[in-house]
């Protein structure tokens, strides 16, 4: 772990009150520290509370127990200062804006002047320079996801939060997108929390993988990923990669 802690999820628990009044503990005693510039992947089966953790870091929820801070501050302060970048599984592009305007949206929301060269550069970086004037409905699923990642990065955020950004894509496109994401991320090396179901995705992208399991979810295992960057897709065929993948897969299986 890098010496400086950027994101500190400090013994956090989250209890939801359902419509019928019953209480549901989504996560319990989760303790995660993410260093500055570190890329951490949160891996786990459906319903173990990965999105809940990400939403807590994004200030979309308030922790019931414990506390989340980013560089010592409340996450809500970062979002108010427009220093968070986020991409969801569902691209969440605004259908009435063009690709270019969608990427420029964070500037407008922050009340800043749109840096058109930055928008253009990012669109080139995600390989959509030619589609600047298109509408989201005219793009494929993979292209939309790239736009939403460009939008997440456009303000050079302090923290990048990705909740299964490629979850809805087919396996081939997904692998391709992972290679792209690694390349894009390498430009800035921004502190990143990636939520994913996919063992391969986590291994290929992250500096460190955390496995969450159980209901309520807790962190069951932690693994450092030693591959040097930039990583070539071919590392996914190495024996080390396979060994680590097996270990993670085993950790994911609940006491089987």
């Amino acid at each position: 772990m890098s010496p400086e802690t950027a994101i500190n999820v400090d013994h956090v628990g989250m209890v939801f009150t359902l419509d019928d009044g019953t209480e549901l503990t989504a996560v319990r005693d989760v303790d995660i520290k993410i260093g500055k510039g570190e890329f951490v992947a949160l891996l786990g089966p459906s319903g173990c509370g990965k999105s809940t953790i990400l939403r807590l870091v994004a200030a979309l929820e308030e922790a019931s127990f414990g506390r989340v801070t980013i560089e010592g501050q409340d996450p809500a302060e970062l979002s108010r200062a427009h220093r968070l970048g986020v991409a969801f599984q569902d691209h969440a592009l605004l259908p009435w804006l063009t690709v270019k305007d969608n990427v420029a949206l964070p500037y407008k929301v922050a009340g800043k002047k749109v840096d058109t060269t930055r928008v253009k550069e990012l669109l080139e970086l995600v390989g959509l320079g030619k589609f600047a004037g298109a509408r989201p409905s005219q793009l494929s699923g993979g292209m939309r996801q790239r736009v939403s990642i460009a939008r997440a990065l456009v303000l050079r955020p302090d923290v990048l939060l990705l909740d299964e950004p490629f979850g809805a894509l087919d396996a081939v496109t997904r692998r391709h997108m992972n290679v792209e994401l690694q390349r894009i991320w390498a430009e800035d090396e921004v502190t990143t929390l990636l939520v994913t179901h996919s063992v391969e995705e986590a291994l290929f992208l992250a500096d460190r993988v955390l496995v969450m399991t159980g209901r309520p979810g807790t962190v069951a295992m932690e693994m450092k990923i030693p591959f040097a960057r930039p990583r070539d897709p071919s590392i996914q065929r190495t024996p080390e990669f396979h060994a680590m993948a097996d270990k993670l897969t085993l950790a994911l299986e609940p006491e089987a």
Binding site: A81, L84, V86
Partner: peptide, 8 residues
């Protein structure tokens, strides 16, 4: 959610 995270 997006607008909230962007601090709108």
């Amino acid at each position: 959610d997006l607008f909230k995270v962007l601090g709108a």
